[in-house]
Structure formats: C-alpha cells, structure tokens
Amino acid sequence: MQIVFNGEFMGHSEAKIGIIEPAVLYGLGCFTTIRLHAGKPRFFDEHWRRFTDNMQQLCIELTLNADTALAHIIELGRLNKVAEGAVRISCHPRYEGVDYMIFVTPPRRADPPAAYRLTLSSWPHPGASPLSAVKHNNYALFRSAHMEARAAEWDECLLADASQQVIEGAISNFFWVDDEQCLCTPSIESGALPGVIRGKVLELFPAIRERTPHVDQLRRATEIFLTNSSFEIKPVSEIDGEKLAGASGEITAKVIRSFQEAYPEM
C-alpha cells in the first residue's frame, strides 16, 4: 500500500518514526478520517478545518496545506486503486519538527449491515475535558471499547460517564428520539466529539435538542441513529437486545432522506 509520509509517496513499510519521539511516548498528535467516494474525499473542507483547529490546540505547527493534502489523497486513491474507502490524515510532533502521514484504504467492513446493533460499553467515558473536541492520537480508550464490542458481535458501543450520562459512541456520535418524540443529541459541552456528519445533521435540523441522556432514558428511546464520516448515517435496530425501529423509524428515515437530498453522492 502506498502512503504519503512527510510529502513523499512510499510503501507503508518504508515510513519510520523515532521510538523516543513524543508521538510514541505520549500519544501526542491528531488525526481525521474521511470517507472516500468516487475517488474524492467527502466534506474535505470541514475535516481539514477541524484537523487544523486540533493542531493549533495541541501546538503542532505543520506546513502542509489543504490543496497539497487534497492532491495527495486523490493520487493515493489512484495508486492504491481505491475509489470507495477511507482516508486518514494524521500528524505528530517530533522533538525537532513534525511528521505527517496520509493513508487511503478500502472500507474496513466490505458488507456492513443496513442497521447497527449497539451495546452500552463497560468502558467509562472520561467526560468533558480540554481534549474532548480534539481527535487526538491518544485513542486507546475508545479503540479498546470498540474492539471489545466487535469481539462480542456488536456493531458499535456507546460510552457513559461516571454519572451514567451517555456521551457518544466509540467511533460515532449518536442521535435519539425521546419520550416526547423530539430528536436529541448530546452536546459538545458534555464531552462528545464535534463530528463532521453530526454538524451537518444539526445544520439540516436546527430544532434538534442538544441534551445528554441518562442510561435509563436512552433505553426508552424509540429511535437511535449514529453518525460517522465513514458510514455517514446509520440506523440502529437494537441496543442490548431491545429492538428499535431502525431504518423504518419515521424520524430516522426523514433525517436520512434529507441528508441524501442535501449531500447527494455524485
């Protein structure tokens, strides 16, 4: 697989980083993951804006610009013969300078289900912090929770904080329909990541309530759907054995339809 490492195209096994660099010792750095569709990254500008904001928050000075990154992505898709898949851009500081990498890969799941089955994870969400809005490389908690859920044959898991408030998925944001049939999603202030697709849904439906459900409240939800840049919007058909409406839910169906009309896959 070809990647871009510090501006150079090379095989992924050729890229090297120092074992005592801050990225290795402390997980310092940030990344973004973008859906590749028809050889082009979806919502590239929004991802790039968040990525550069995250770099500023971590005091990382990277000279890579958006036009060069976009050209690298398109060329990597061509070289790796991937038109549908995922893009990852990541960077981390060295003791002197900054490394950056760009990957383009096929989808992790070749045939994902139409609706996801969820579980509430035993891994605790850390709650709001100065890093909550940063997609940083110290990702072990969320990665471990997701791997545990997948090993148990769930598609994704949701994480609750110490007060049993459900904040976000391991790899996703979530929306839920409450007892009053109102569409809600946890606020960024609660510690949820400001996902790009989450933001697009909020733009389309400004009446969405930003509030964070208790575990018991979420279990009474009539509809849940997830947002993530790789699958964009995914209905939820089950949470810990409790069946949900999935794609047939009236509100979920409306959101998916409106999103597809606003952002068609050209």
Rank of each mutant, 00 (worst) to 15 (best):
T68M: 13
S13D: 10
V236K: 00
S237G: 10
A110V: 13
S122I: 11
I34Y: 04
S90K: 13
T185A: 01
A83I: 08
S230V: 14
T227V: 04
H92W: 13
H125Y: 08
P112D: 06
D216V: 12
A114R: 13
K243N: 05
I251T: 08
A71V: 12
H92G: 09
Y263F: 08
A133S: 12
G241I: 07
L36N: 01
G127H: 04
L193R: 04
G27I: 02
E180P: 03
V87C: 00
R94G: 04
R143G: 12
A114M: 13
T33K: 13
R42N: 11
A71T: 10
R117S: 05
H12K: 12
F142I: 13
K81C: 12
D155F: 11
I20V: 14
Y263G: 04
A207P: 07
A110K: 15
M10F: 01
L218V: 03
I89F: 04
F259I: 05
P41I: 10
E261P: 03
P93F: 00
A66Y: 11
K243D: 03
N65W: 11
M55T: 14
R219Q: 11
A221Q: 05
E261Y: 09
L183V: 05
H72F: 15
K40H: 15
W123R: 12
L62K: 07
D67A: 14
E168I: 01
V255K: 05
A15P: 03
N228H: 00
N54V: 08
H136G: 10
L120M: 06
T185F: 03
T63N: 15
Q57F: 15
I167F: 00
P206A: 10
E96T: 09
F225A: 08
F43H: 15
T185G: 02
D155N: 09
D178K: 05
E261M: 11
A133C: 12
D99H: 09
P186R: 03
L158F: 14
C91T: 03
I208T: 02
P130S: 10
R108W: 15
S248V: 10
Q181D: 03
H37Q: 12
I102H: 07
W176P: 01
M10V: 00
N80Y: 00
S121R: 02
V98L: 05
F9K: 03
I171S: 06
H136K: 07
V215M: 09
W154H: 15
C182S: 09
L202P: 01
G29S: 06
P194M: 06
A221S: 10
L25I: 09
G27Q: 05
M10T: 02
E156F: 06
W123L: 10
G127S: 08
I171K: 01
F31K: 04
E84A: 11
V215D: 07
Y26P: 08
S163G: 15
I239W: 02
T185I: 04
T63K: 15
C182E: 09
K135T: 00
T185Q: 05
P22Y: 00
